[in-house]
Amino acid sequence: MANTDGNGYTIGFATIMVIVVGGILAALATGLKPAIKENERFEKQQNILYAMGVNENGDDTGSVNFIPTDKVEEEFTKYIKETYIIQGGKIAQSDEAFKVDMKKESKLAKSTRKMPLYVGERDGKKFYVIPMYGKGLWDAIWGYVALDDQLVVQGATFDHKGETPGLGANIKERYFMDDFIGESIMNNGKYAGITVAKGNNDPKNLTKDDNEVDAMAGATITGDGVTAMIKSTLKSYIPHIQKLK
């Protein structure tokens, strides 16, 4: 056995290990990139459609059932009629909307940020699906909220990168997302957003005009993150939706 304590051996070992590990990871990342990108695209389409009520929930009231990946492409072109990009206070129709990277845009100033808007139609009703990106307790959270002409929420999906399982991670559970349906983002003609509120004495969320949904137990900061994300994002979309309808 060679002397494993020598400096030469140590450096040699380190070099070989870096090359091997780096090689494996780089090869893996490049090789799997197309498949991963495709999965991410399907997921995005599933989420947008889910927010506007195109999903396979049926009679199931407990879990989230997206359109299956093999059908999602087709359904997406069927339901999403127009896509727009809002930038610098101006709105323009654009096919690039789907490719906008929300994470990158969220780091830019609001005036130069590209903000995508998806307009869909289902059963003769128009839906404005708004993507959003914010911060939870540990890492990024994001979601899609679908509004109708009256600025009432018709559906919402949320997701997260690393919230605590069982606590903050519950933002992607059905019971939390369903609470948003029917809530208006306006209050007496003024913009109010939607607040994830603790102890609002309305756990079943029967009052729909209070701009509040019930918070998740034990996940205050994630809930506040959702509130902040919704408030700041929807605000910049309202004038444009008003113009479009």
Binding site: G89, A109, T112, K190, S236, I238
Partner: peptide
Amino acid sequence: AVAIKTPAQEEINETATTVVSTT
């Protein structure tokens, strides 16, 4: 902070205020 830096932002805010009377 952003609003002070960029006039374009104020423009959006203004439209927002007139359309939905956000204050």
